[in-house]
Computed example of a mutant assay.
Amino acid sequence: MAISKLQLALLATAMAAAAISPTASGAYTGCATPRKVTIQNLSGRDLPLSETPLANSGALFGAGYVLRHGTHAEFTTCLWTGRVAAPGAAVVEFHVGPDGGAWYQVDNRQAGSPVKVTVTPHGRPLQGHCPAAGCRGGGQCFADAVPGGNCHAVDELKIIYYSP
């Protein structure tokens, strides 16, 4: 059976589209199960977010991203390492890997900060030592770091910004 020029053109277009549309910008393409980074804003103000990708990670959300109060955003990725920052909040540094491993850290000395922030891993079920890190409103604080190699089966890493 011969392939028509139209079929060949459609096949070439589909292959090109698949090649340039990874799960997330800069995402590792060998991922069998993509991971999710969710950022939620409960701070009482709109938050301009910035990111600093590390270890050859691509952009997670890009420059100029503003997360409106009362909303959340989900970013699908397979492999990402870097920092996320918002004005008035502690910087969150984390890594999510294609195998479900994760590490994360955020200062839990946020008493004078106008915006509090926590990082919490989610999985079904989580394995290892995976506590919440950072501080919520009302002065409730948790661990400040989860070192590499001890938190596994992470499907989602959730960053939440709170009002004091």
Rank of each mutant, 00 (worst) to 15 (best):
G30V: 07
G101D: 11
L54I: 07
P121E: 02
I39W: 01
S57Q: 09
K36V: 15
N108P: 03
G44S: 14
G134K: 00
I159P: 00
N41C: 06
M1Y: 09
G82D: 05
V84C: 00
D107Y: 01
D99R: 06
Y28F: 14
L6S: 11
V119M: 02
C130P: 05
S21R: 08
S163K: 11
L49T: 04
G148R: 08
T77G: 00
D46R: 02
R136I: 07
P22F: 05
G128M: 10
R45H: 08
G97K: 00
I39F: 01
I159S: 02
S57A: 12
A132R: 14
Q40S: 12
S4V: 14
G134V: 04
M15H: 07
D107M: 05
H69G: 15
I159C: 00
H72K: 13
E156D: 12
E93I: 05
L11P: 06
T71Y: 09
P114C: 02
F142K: 07
Q105G: 08
G26Y: 04
R136M: 13
C78E: 06
P121A: 06
A27Q: 07
G128C: 12
S25G: 12
T29E: 09
V37G: 01
G88Q: 04
V92Y: 02
Y28C: 09
S163I: 09
L8N: 08
I20S: 11
P34L: 03
S43D: 02
H69V: 06
G62T: 10
P147Y: 15
V117H: 01
V154W: 04
W103N: 08
V115K: 00
V92R: 03
C31V: 14
K5I: 09
I3V: 15
G112P: 04
H152D: 15
T38A: 09
A59R: 10
G128T: 10
A145P: 06
S25Q: 13
G97E: 14
L6W: 14
D155Q: 13
W103F: 10
P164C: 05
T118G: 08
A145S: 09
P147G: 15
I3G: 07
T38S: 14
L126Y: 11
S21H: 08
G62H: 11
C141T: 12
D155N: 15
P53L: 06
W80H: 15
C135K: 02
T77E: 04
M15I: 12
L8G: 14
T33M: 06
V91Y: 00
A32V: 13
R35P: 05
